[in-house]
Write a protein that binds this DNA or RNA. Structure first.
Lengths: 237, 237
DNA sequence: CTAAAAAGGAGACGGTGCGTACCCTAGGAT
DNA sequence: ATCCTAGGGTACGCACCGTCTCCTTTTTAG
């Protein structure tokens, strides 16, 4: 049999790692199994990635490479609900399991986190800002709502649902509740009307709103291709 | 030297496990080390807890046994900010590191999660409901805001901060931003005034508010003593 | 008071996984 | 044809989990 090398081999290993990741999660990912499945041995793996964490990230990136487009139903509520449903589906899919698993493992292994953050969190916030922005131009939301932390509240709450309850899928009621009881009221409340607490402090105006907000312009953003190519390929080429 | 047994020994083991947990995190927690540190051996440990996960929970509970009282400054904003600051301090303390570490590990080991949920999440939501409730009686918040998911939004966002950014402490700006940009506007928005989207659906009234809300009465609630005594003591005593 | 039965202590073992090292071989480059 | 790089096979040391066996101390029962 011919002996594979270079890019072909890298690809085979990465594919094997991704498969193992889906089947067994990050915790169950073993270097031996990856090597075996790729039809090679640990040597070839360690020559390219310094350890399990690095290989895990690389494999996850290959999995997450699918693009996500923004829904555009004409109503903020429906847009948000739709986006939330997609995220929910994604979370409860094998890929989501891997994602949550990796994020969990990242709490311990610091190097995992760095590579992971850009791959999911950052890109995601662009999606949500996009939806909100469209709502602003429709007059459905005040411009003051265009804030990364505000825009992503819904996903954060959904993710929390997964963290607190076990794995499984979050039922649709929960999504609806998040949108109707929290997201929409929040947007509404940011309209600035009815200050409700007439007591002391002027509640706004601190130094935020510059550091955090990015351009949020490009409407279709891939889920993870933007600051890549650093962990995907080895340390000593 | 005399040979310890029963409660004394259990206590020594638990103390040792808690120490190890603080020093090395859940991932670095080894049964050997715990046994050694407690001046005994794995045998005595395994006779009481079925495995690492169970021991981890039990040890964590001993750590988290400190009570948390609710702040009462007379202003919702200050109450929330104060509570959030406490949580932030707690998150960035060794105990918090352990807590996040355990929660991370729980993503993989299902049995961990069950014991952990009641120990932190559930009890925490009572605190937040308490603060909110006081604000309602002061007229600072609408009664419709008395909803577990609403009440805990701030902590959830803060926890998310820890998950997404690495460990470290969240800077105070972030807390203020969460309160002023999200929590307060959300409460304000739930007042029901200014519906903002005059289009279709009446946005409220679904089946919530019965299943989820508990009594939320007792003003001083220990952080974890309420459905205990199940993992703290062994399986075949 | 003595003997049986719990319960603790010491240490070994098998299993699994990580990461490393050694040596051999294929195959592209010169 | 020959070098040298990179892949392959395999064994190793290490750490950890969870189990088991043998022995000793303490408690309890008779």
């Amino acid at each position: 049999m011919r002996r594979r090398r270079g890019a072909v081999l890298v690809d085979a290993i990465l594919r094997a790692a991704a498969d193992e990741l889906v089947e067994s999660g990050y915790a169950g990912l073993t270097m031996e199994a990856v090597a075996r499945r790729a039809g090679t041995n640990k040597n070839a793996v360690y020559r390219r990635w310094p350890g399990k964490a690095a290989l895990g990230i690389a494999a996850y990136r290959r999995l997450a490479a699918a693009a996500t487009d923004v829904p555009d139903t004409g109503s903020l509520r429906e847009d948000v609900l739709e986006l939330l449903r997609r995220v929910n589906r994604q979370f409860s899919s094998p890929l989501g399991a891997v994602q949550r698993d990796l994020l969990a493992a990242a709490a311990t292994e610091a190097d995992l986190l760095a590579g992971l953050r850009e791959a999911s969190a950052d890109a995601g916030s662009l999606l949500w800002l996009g939806v909100l922005e469209r709502a602003v131009t429709r007059g459905e939301a005040p411009a003051s709502a265009l804030h990364p932390r505000v825009a992503t509240v819904a996903v954060v709450l959904l993710r929390n649902e997964y963290v607190v309850r076990g794995a499984q899928t979050a039922p649709d009621d929960v999504l609806v509740e998040i949108v109707d009881e929290i997201y929409l009221p929040l947007i509404r409340g940011r309209a600035g009307s009815a200050p409700l607490h007439p007591s002391a402090d002027p509640p706004d105006d601190r130094g935020h709103d510059e550091e955090d907000r990015r351009d949020h312009e490009q409407p279709e953003q891939t889920l993870d291709r933007q600051a890549d190519d650093r962990q995907d390929q080895p340390h000593h080429q």
